[in-house]
């Protein structure tokens, strides 16, 4: 599977050196600290990271959902080469958000309005963005429900969200997202709240839609398995920065950054028996006062003098970048018993 095959010319979405800050009582939290990424047409990018790494903030920034006390401090977000920031950009952004770029949220239980019928909620999108009449919108909504695999869509239109199960609600969310035939779908942990067999159904649906509609997808998740199945390219985030990016096969097979290596080896696998997992001691740094230099140095077994200076995201191979002074060095020994018991 080639990544750049479809991404000739201007990428669909570019995020450049984006910094997002949140003014909180504890001080200024640097949520994003210079994130650069781009997505081409028909491409699927997986953004992986733990809580607080900035993966959702990146998505929210693109969708214009950063609200007070947060703000975009610097950097740029471009859609087909045109900036979405500034007063001109914001007018442009209002036209494309929800229409050309759509988002699916994590929690299908709370993202739908509980007092409106499903048909009304989907119809709203169509009337607002495509100027359809109520009757047209209703017909189209029925088609959309059928497209995301909901049976008896005509009857389902008149039901309320509580009459749908979690998996079905997520299908409704996806139906709303694809209502205006977007070019990019941002899915923020779309399957985290779902059971594993339902997760498989939703991932299958996303893959099908990507094929049939030629969608580009940004899939944000903490689950490395979900990324492995669906994504062409992966970006690994840590403490508000992208620390490694490359083709999915590459990143999983030859992780260069010690954090990526650790993440992969601390994840138990269904198809393998391991005696002990690698455990990355410590916790991610506080983003009010992020450490000087590499943000992973306190937890990194390879850290040394050089790591006091922040490494830049640099090419380690064609199509692969990592932000590390000692990339591709095996960082984790075979784990032993923890030091608690001598």
């Amino acid at each position: 599977m080639s990544v750049s095959a479809n991404s000739t010319g201007t990428p669909l979405l570019e995020v450049e050196k984006l910094k997002v800050e949140f003014d909180t009582r504890r001080g200024l939290v640097q949520g994003l600290r210079g994130v650069t990424l781009s997505i081409g047409r028909g491409e699927t990018l997986g953004v992986v990271g733990e809580s607080g790494s900035g993966k959702s903030v990146t998505a929210q920034a693109v969708m214009g959902l950063i609200d007070l006390p947060g703000r975009i401090a610097s950097g740029d977000i471009r859609w087909k080469g045109r900036s979405l920031l500034g007063s001109d950009g914001e007018r442009y952004a209002r036209d494309i958000r929800g229409k050309e770029v759509a988002m699916v949220f994590q929690d299908p239980m709370t993202s739908l309005n509980p007092v409106l019928k499903i048909g009304t909620q989907i119809g709203e999108v169509l009337e607002r963005h495509l100027g359809m009449t109520r009757a047209q919108a209703r017909n189209r909504a029925e088609e959309l429900l059928a497209a995301v695999g909901i049976s008896a869509p005509g009857r389902r239109l008149d039901q309320y969200p509580h009459e749908f199960s979690g998996g079905m609600r997520q299908r409704v969310m996806i139906a709303m997202a694809i209502a205006c035939e977007p070019e990019l779908l941002i899915a923020d942990e779309p399957t985290t709240a779902l059971d594993v067999t339902i997760q498989a159904q939703i991932l299958e649906l996303l893959a099908e839609l990507q094929q049939s509609l030629g969608l580009s997808v940004v899939l944000i998740t903490h689950d490395l398995g979900v990324v492995a199945g669906l994504c062409h390219r992966v970006a690994v985030m840590y403490a508000g920065q992208i620390i490694e990016t490359g083709l999915a096969e590459d990143v999983f097979e030859r992780p260069a950054h010690p954090y990526t290596q650790g993440l992969l080896r601390s994840t138990p696998r269904l198809d393998e028996v391991s005696d002990r997992l690698v455990s990355i001691e410590g916790t991610p740094p506080n983003l009010v006062t992020p450490p000087e230099g590499c943000s992973f140095q306190q937890r990194c077994p390879l850290s040394g003098e050089a790591c006091r200076k922040a490494p830049k995201l640099e090419h380690i191979r064609p199509d692969a970048e990592a932000a590390c002074w000692r990339p591709s060095v095996p960082a984790w020994a075979t784990p032993l018993m923890s030091p608690t018991f001598p």
């Binding site: 594993v196 067999t197 689950d223 398995g225 492995a228 199945g229 096969e249 198809d271």
Partner: peptide, 15 residues
């Protein structure tokens, strides 16, 4: 079915 639904963190195997 349950086992087959669990994704494995390895693109080649998973596909």
């Amino acid at each position: 079915a349950l086992l087959s639904a669990v994704p494995v963190p390895d693109p080649r195997t998973q596909r």
